[in-house]
Amino acid sequence: MATVNMADVKRLRELTAAGMMDCKKALTEAEGDFDKAVEILRLMGAKDVGKREARTASNGLVAAKLEGTSLGALLELNCETDFVAKGERFQELAAKVVDHIAATKPADVDALLSSELEGKSVKEHLDEANAALGEKIEIRRFSLLEGGYIASYLHKSDPQLPPTVGVLVQLDKENAEIGKDLAQHIAAMAPKWLSREDVPADVVEKERALFEQMTRDEGKPEQAIAKIVEGRIGGFYKDFTVLEQPFVKDNKKTIAKVAQEAGVTVQAFARYKVGQA
């Protein structure tokens, strides 16, 4: 039996993103032949793709693509570990797919997966990455914004890893400075809706019931409860709607006020953080 060189194990792991024990096993089976070990790992990966379907892919990255200034695409591509997420092959796949989204404008994830990219379906590209990298690779979601002026921002929480937060924001007219400021604000403050009118009625009613119970539990006078609850609903809107949030650079102004002073209207946004709803 050939002695396994640990330097080759390390090199094989860096090339394929496979686990250390799998790399060692492949090199042993290949009797130290590096290229043969690569093929063994690829074969092992292809056989295991189906088994990985039930596993959780909670790592990954967010990628963005702008076509000019009036179209933007945002993609969350997931894997199982940050080791794979920071790998060149995974990041190249994300860049290829987000470019494809911007070019073809698919209706939803299913349409994206079945669409053709370089002679194969996007799903086939994911399956190949699955096999080669040894992890579940999946597209969780994507967004497209078109029209007006689109700005984007990608945030890295760790300089060694790819971006894990991404934002697109759509203005009615071009203003690069405000677009950048608002995209960074949205990345930091994590709003869920653009305005209070966009918050689903059932969400508002659920919050109202919660605040009412909370206020009663605090022993507030019955005649004051309705007013206190409405005040707390107002606070909810300030926390979770873009236009009512205080601007991170000047918390004396709301985003609505900042946009008004800049002469622009915020029309839409998309914000993804890897692994979060």
Rank of each mutant, 00 (worst) to 15 (best):
L194P: 07
Q213G: 13
F240V: 13
A188H: 01
Y272C: 07
T104K: 06
N5A: 02
F211M: 13
A26W: 04
G50I: 09
F240A: 00
E67G: 02
A46E: 09
V242L: 12
V84E: 05
A95F: 01
T3G: 09
K65W: 01
A103N: 03
L243Y: 00
V274I: 13
R196T: 06
Q184A: 15
R196L: 04
L75C: 11
F236L: 08
S114C: 02
E222N: 06
I137W: 12
Q160L: 11
C23V: 02
D110P: 05
G275M: 13
R89P: 00
A64W: 03
M189Q: 13
I101L: 10
G148S: 11
T241S: 11
V84L: 05
A268D: 13
D110I: 05
V49M: 12
V242Y: 08
T254I: 02
A102P: 06
Q170C: 04
L145P: 00
Q245I: 10
T28N: 03
E29T: 07
R55M: 07
R208Y: 08
A256L: 09
A64H: 12
S157N: 09
A256C: 03
N175R: 07
L171E: 01
E212L: 09
N5H: 01
D239R: 14
L74P: 01
G219T: 06
A37I: 06
D239K: 15
A270D: 13
L210H: 15
L113N: 02
D198R: 02
E118P: 00
K51H: 12
V204A: 01
K136G: 00
V97K: 10
K24Y: 03
A30F: 00
E174M: 10
I186V: 14
N130R: 05
R13L: 03
A256G: 07
D250Y: 06
D82T: 13
V97M: 06
V204Q: 03
D239V: 03
E207K: 15
G263F: 13
S152K: 14
E138V: 14
A151S: 15
H185P: 12
P191I: 11
D217Q: 15
